[in-house]
Amino acid sequence: MTDDDVYWALIDVANGLISGTMLGGYYAIIAIGLTLTFGVMRLVNLAHGDWLVFSAYLSLVFLSLVPISPLYTLIGVVPVMYGVGYALQRLLLNRVSVQAMEQKGMSTSFGLMSPILVTFGMSIVLAQGLLAGFSSNTQVIRNELSYSAIQLSEDLSVSTLRLTFFCVAVAILVLTALLLRATHVGRAIRAASDDAEIAPLMGMRPARIYATASGISLAIAGVAGVMVGMTRPFQPFDGPQFLLVAFGVVILGGMGSLAGSLVGGILLGVVQILAGTYFGPSAQLVGGYMLILAVLALKPQGLFAR
C-alpha cells in the first residue's frame, strides 16, 4: 500500500464516521418519541412513522400558505403535532389502554393487544389519507441548506443541513431530559411510568399525564418529519420504514434512555454508512440489521439499559 492508499482509506473512514454520526442524530429524534410513549405507558405506537411522514406533508402545506424558509414551518408543525398527540391519547388511546380494558372487565392480554391493533389501524388510515390528499407522487421540501456543505479539510466535508439537524437533535434530547428531570410535569411523567397505580396518590392525573407524554412524543416526531422532508424525497407509505429505524435505535440504546437513543442512533448510522462504503449501497440496510440482530442476541435489554 502506498501512502496515498492509506490516506484515502482514512478519509473514507472519517467521512463514514462524520456522516454516520450526523445520520445518528436524526435517527435518535425518530426514536425518542417512540421510547417516550413506550416508557411511560407501555404503549407501542405503530403509527409513529406515519405521523412523522404526516408532519413532513404538514410542513409542505404550511409552505404553500406562507413563503418562508422550511425550518420555520416547525413553528407551526410542532404545536399542531403536540395537539394531535394530546387529543389522540385523550380521546382514543386512553380508552383502549390496558388499564381501560381491565376496567371494562377484559383480560390483560386483550388489553395489551388493543392499542397495537388500534395504532396499526391508525397507520393504515393515515397513509391512505395522505395518498388521497397528496397522491403517491414523491415530494420533497426544497431548501437551500441541502446544497451547501462545510469543508473540514480538502477531502472531508459535512453537509450543512445534516450538521444543523444533528445540533437540533442534540438540543431536543437535552431539552427533553431537562423537562423530565426538572419540571413538575416531567416528574409526573416519570412517576406515572414507574408506578401508575400510586401516581394518583400524589394528585397526578394519569389520563392527562399520558396525553402530555403523547403530545411531546408527536411534537418530536413532527421535528423529525420536517427533517426527513428536507433531506430526502418522501411519499405516503414511507411511515413503516421510519418505525423500523426507531425500533432499531431503541433495541441498540435500550428502551426509555435518552442518552441511549443518541448513542444507539449514532451507532446505527455509522454502521450503516460504513457498510455502504465498503460493501456497496445495498449493504447499508443489511449492515444495520446485522448490528441490531447481534445486539438482540448478545444483550437483548439494549446496550445502555439500566
Binding site: R190, D194, I198, G203, M204
Partner: peptide, 25 residues
C-alpha cells in the same frame, strides 16, 4: 393521603425527587 403497603416509591428517582413528586398538586 396514604402511605401504601410496600412503600411503592418511585424507585429510579432520588429521595428529593420522590418528595417533590409528592407535591405535584
Amino acid at each position: 393521603t396514604m402511605v401504601p403497603e410496600g412503600r411503592r416509591l418511585f424507585a429510579r428517582m432520588s429521595v428529593e425527587e420522590n418528595l417533590a413528586a409528592g407535591a405535584f398538586l
